[in-house]
Nucleic acid binder design. Structure first.
Lengths: 243, 243
DNA sequence: AAGTGGTCTAGACCACGAC
DNA sequence: TCGTGGTCTAGACCACTTA
């Protein structure tokens, strides 16, 4: 028998407040209850409420005004993500008002190029798992993503890989690794004919290309990613807040 | 006579720790003193130390490991920015290892287009201040930036505008406005001949284009920005951390 | 077992904005 | 003046890693 540890209080409060903002219990532009009121309602200390509100604030969900109060950001509908959500393509597509679906294209074994090996801290020629997938927004191809991870990290067989999983979940499930941070290179690129065809995008029109490296808490590279955004369908609009 | 208010303790601690990481007092990969040791050294509570460390952690400067310790990220040299620093082009250029300089190109009055007016919440035809500048990395043109702000917001004369100021400082100094959050649209674009010429970039090669709207805490649009990155010189490489 | 970071509390005082 | 959020403290206990 296993006791289900209750999640941290702050996480529960976080979830509740997010939900209230999402479902307009706290409507855009409205003022939230004060910190004292919230701490009273949830029966937690004010400090706990504050750590939660701080998180919502950096994501731009709420705006805090000293001496006045806390307000829901009116412009959330204009945005699809904040930086923390950059790699959750499904949520990004849905936040843009579309229905998201994932088509796993291929899960292959490839040998590491000089460049990949360098980035992953392994030797050239080592075996990599290459996971390609296409994300649709309302049935239209929106994002083409390819992840590379060293097969040596995986403890599970390729056949069992669920091509719809988020890369974070894959690394967790198949490699027992947690992503601690990521470094992203954002570029403009003219698509190859392959990429253009897959995204149903004119060859001469540039695309947004995100190249990312994922690392664990020991600075060990876990995986690489390269994604192309069809920005005739999907814009990358992110919100950022200060203080 | 004016009393100089001492800055918040946490800000001072923040500055000190950043400096120690920057000058490798805490070298990449090294373990930092524990929270208790730091709180002892600075004579502050552990909670205060923790709020500072949390900020450094979200920027990816340090990695925290429960039950173990806090470590300096080894890969800081690969990065030029994190999300909070996205619009400080000077720092971005310097973090990339170049010497930065700013050339103010023009400060004009223009009339708001339908689109600009919409974005700024004003009427089409109203007067805007258009500030164009070119950021150099080692004498090479790297970023072309143009900001638009309604003249009506400004209390100072155009002639007195310092074209080298950060947009945040401009809004503060000339409009008494603070930026609370920003919404950014990241796109790939083929440069116009003008833009290409200014950045000494081939016309057929795509550029990264960042379109940003700045807002105050009342959701009022303060200014617009549009920047083109010459990514043959300057890459946009950002770090992002979770937890 | 010892030491680390993670969570949480109950309180204090300050800075600021609205009334 | 009052209520808000901003800063800070001193302490408790938990979860986790390492030895």
């Amino acid at each position: 028998m296993r006791v289900i540890r209750s999640k941290p209080i702050s996480e529960q409060v976080n979830t509740i407040l997010r939900e209230r903002i999402r479902n307009t219990t706290y409507a855009p532009g409205r003022r939230l209850p004060s910190e004292s009121e919230l701490s009273g309602e949830f029966g937690v200390s004010r400090a706990t409420v504050r750590t939660v509100l701080a998180k919502l604030a950096v994501e731009g969900l709420i705006l805090r005004k000293q001496g006045d109060g806390t307000y829901v950001n009116k412009r959330l509908d204009e945005v699809n993500t904040h930086l923390g959500g950059l790699w959750d393509f499904v949520r990004l597509i849905e936040s843009s008002g579309f229905t998201a679906s994932i088509e796993p294209l291929a899960i292959d074994h490839v040998t590491a190029s000089e460049e990949d090996a360098q980035a992953l801290g392994i030797n050239p020629g080592e075996d990599l798992l290459a996971i390609s997938r296409l994300f649709y927004a309302n049935e239209k191809p929106a994002i083409l993503a390819r992840n590379l991870l060293p097969s040596a990290f995986c403890t599970a067989q390729v056949e069992t890989v669920d091509g719809r999983l988020h890369i974070r979940e894959m690394l967790k499930a198949y490699c027992q690794e947690d992503i601690a941070f990521a470094i992203t290179d954002i570029q403009a690129a003219l698509p190859s004919t392959d990429v253009a065809a897959t995204l149903q995008h004119p060859v001469g029109q540039p695309l947004l290309n995100l190249k990312v490296s994922f690392y664990n808490a020991n600075d060990k590279p876990l995986a690489l990613g390269s994604s192309y955004f069809n920005d005739s369908i999907l814009r990358l609009r992110l919100v950022q807040a200060w203080n």
